[in-house]
Design a protein around this nucleic acid. Structure first.
Length: 580
RNA sequence: GGGCGUGUAGCAUAGCCUGGAUAAUGCACUGGCCUCCUAAGCCAGGGACCGCGGGUUCGAAUCCUGCCGCGCCCGCCA
């Protein structure tokens, strides 16, 4: 109810000017009501008790009496327990709602555009995509869409693991297996096996291990044939990633790839510049940065950010520092977001601190670790990839689609086979994504098929069902959807008013979601809206309304509701089916 | 040991940044509602010492502090 506060606040200041309170004081008290049933906006008057030398209850009554006339037609005032309560007047609410009818953006304003790099997904070449990549990919995609919608220039960066020592063994294994065979057979799947085979040969077969080590040297020396083999692995992997991205319906494509290999020429420069800034220290033959402060290890000794190992190799931190240089200096971005799991929190804190101290970033740049929790199984255990036993992302998505298909087949026999296939994908993928997005990303969440695919509760299928119901109304409506832009909306029933509130609050909710990089806030709002629609749907006949004006008004509400749901879900990367 | 995070009905969560009312939502549970736009729904109801103790405040789930439980991180891996 941001808009209501904006309208009311000046009127309230003016009305209370005769009282011995400052505008700031009153302003600090006006806020959204904590209990939506009591009011939209509230002024708790308890702290004014001393100034007025009266009880909070009397103060509230006095303020209410004074402000009520000026709020005529905007808000309905009342008092209880020392609160002045303002409830949106249906007239104000309806005019606000009507103003959104012709607005494609449903009241969402664009911000002054910033250039924002979002680093997310980050699968590894020649390895399977698993549940951990799911979270990064889905959350990152939603954040990218939110920021774009708010008018920002977003640069997607998929920092794939395509460089480093494992490629020695991977390339040798590729040679052993035969590259033609590999390229043909590895379309979708089975990277896990390939990687495991290479790994076990590396540990069991010393001849292979020697070849692998020699191959790493060749790779780093950019030997032509080695690079070509490396490229085979990268190409097959990225086309696999693209298949998964296509299945998931996320924005990532080949243009967004910026693998570790892309930064390798910057690595010596990182060392040089850290050295020039005086941060670099030699420690046991390695080059490191000691940040001091709270960064101590188990023994209480300061522990370092490793920049260059004693063997001359570079480290993860070095690569991330190179990224920062590239993003700040080549892309000249204002903001750097890293959609990466919480376990790496400390790593990013340290890297950002080094980057600031070394002047790779200045005060105008902000680097934010958009962290997320782990996906747990039903026993509360982490689904880890390296331990093996990880769930392959493609299998998981396929299963979700298949389960969704069964669920809709049980419920609606009118759908053709073709429609069932199409809609199963929308619902299956939507369910997985929404389950991931709808709770606070920083917390762990338990992966539960039954819950995410339930058509009840705060789930994608429930929201999609609301949208499908509205679409059904329009398919039966005598009034076309396009002709509703100028419709007079009248909010007679309580259910209509509650629905209108949700529609009006959409922009505020999106703003909060986008500014905090917390997609679940938007999810909560879409669910509240769908729920308000379901109550409205029961209580207020639309195309069966007796009066034509009422029908048009309700159709307009349906149109806005559908747009809140589909725009909201769209920003989360989830589709809204017109039937299901 | 140090650092970070987390703890809210049987279960899963929101609210915590920015203190405000009888702590909100969903699942599950109980009871109602389909000759009527998709009942995949709606309505009503029961269910919570907001981990525990102190502090700040007129007022604390929210801020501060101390404990306790759980998790993660602290590698010349990424």
């Amino acid at each position: 109810m941001r808009d209501l506060i904006e309208v009311c606040a000046p009127l309230i200041y003016e009305s209370v000017s005769e009282f011995p309170v400052s505008e700031e004081h009153i302003s600090s008290l006006i806020g959204p009501a904590t209990d939506g049933r009591m009011a939209d906006v509230a002024i708790p008057c308890h702290s004014l008790s001393g100034v007025f030398k009266k009880s909070p209850i009397e103060v509230a009554e006095e303020i209410c009496r004074v402000i009520s006339p000026s709020l005529e037609g905007v808000a309905i005032t009342s008092t209880i327990n020392g609160f002045v309560n303002l409830k949106a007047d249906p007239r104000w609410l309806s005019s606000k709602t009507m103003s959104l009818l012709p607005d494609e953006r449903l009241g969402v304003k664009k911000e002054i555009s910033r250039k924002i790099v979002v680093d997310y997904s980050a699968p590894n070449v020649a390895k399977e995509m698993h549940v951990g990549h799911l979270r990064s990919t889905v959350i990152g995609d939603a954040i990218v869409r939110m920021l774009q919608f708010k008018g920002h220039q977003v640069i997607r960066e998929n920092h794939i693991g395509d460089w480093g020592t494992p490629f020695g063994m991977l390339i040798e294994h590729l040679i052993d297996e035969g590259e033609e065979k590999f390229a043909l057979e590895k379309g979708i799947s089975d990277f896990d096996n390939f990687y495991k085979e290479a790994r076990s040969k590396f540990s069991d077969d010393s001849e292979f291990a020697n070849r692998a080590r020699a191959r790493v040297v060749l790779l780093q020396g950019e030997d032509e044939d080695t690079l070509r083999l490396w490229k085979v692995l990268v190409d097959v992997s990225t086309s696999y990633f693209n298949e998964v991205y296509g299945m998931l319906g996320v924005l990532l494509d080949n243009d967004d790839l910026m693998g570790e290999s892309a930064y390798k020429h910057l690595l010596p420069q990182v060392v040089e510049r850290l050295d020039e800034s005086g941060l670099l220290v030699e420690s046991n033959g390695a080059s490191v940065v000691f940040l001091g402060g709270k960064w101590v290890n188990r023994e209480g000794q300061p522990f370092p950010v490793m920049i260059r190992k004693a063997d001359g190799g570079y480290n993860y931190s070095t690569s991330d520092l190179a990224c920062i240089i590239d993003r700040v200096e080549r892309l000249s971005c204002d903001e750097l977001l890293y959609v990466v799991g919480t376990p790496q929190k400390q790593h990013f804190e340290m890297v950002f601190e080094v980057a600031k101290k070394a002047g790779f970033m200045n005060d105008t740049h902000s680097a934010i670790h958009v962290n997320f929790g782990s996906v747990l199984d039903s026993n509360g255990q982490m689904l880890k990839s390296r331990a093996g036993q990880s769930v392959k992302l493609v299998d998981l998505l396929r299963e979700s689609i298949s389960r969704a298909g069964q669920a809709i087949a049980e419920r609606n026999s009118e759908l053709s086979d073709e429609e069932t296939v199409r809609i199963s994908k929308i619902i299956g993928i939507g369910a997985v994504k929404y389950a991931d997005l709808s709770t606070d990303r920083a917390k762990d969440y338990v992966f539960d098929w039954d819950r995410m695919l339930s058509f009840e509760g705060n789930t994608a299928p429930y929201l999609q069902y609301s949208y499908a119901r509205i679409s059904r109304i329009f398919s039966l409506s005598p009034i076309s959807r396009d002709s509703l832009k100028e419709t007079k909306i009248e909010l007679l029933a309580e259910e209509e008013q509650n629905l209108a509130r949700c529609i009006v609050n959409f922009s505020e909710s999106l703003d909060q979601s986008a500014s905090s990089f917390h997609p679940h806030k938007l999810c909560t709002h879409i669910h509240t809206t769908s729920s308000a629609f379901a109550s409205f749907y029961e209580a207020c006949p639309v195309i069966k309304a007796d009066d034509e004006g009422v029908m048009a008004s309700r159709l307009a509400l349906c149109d806005l509701t559908a747009r809140v749901i589909s725009t909201g879900l769209g920003i989360l990367g989830i589709q809204s089916p017109e039937m299901m």
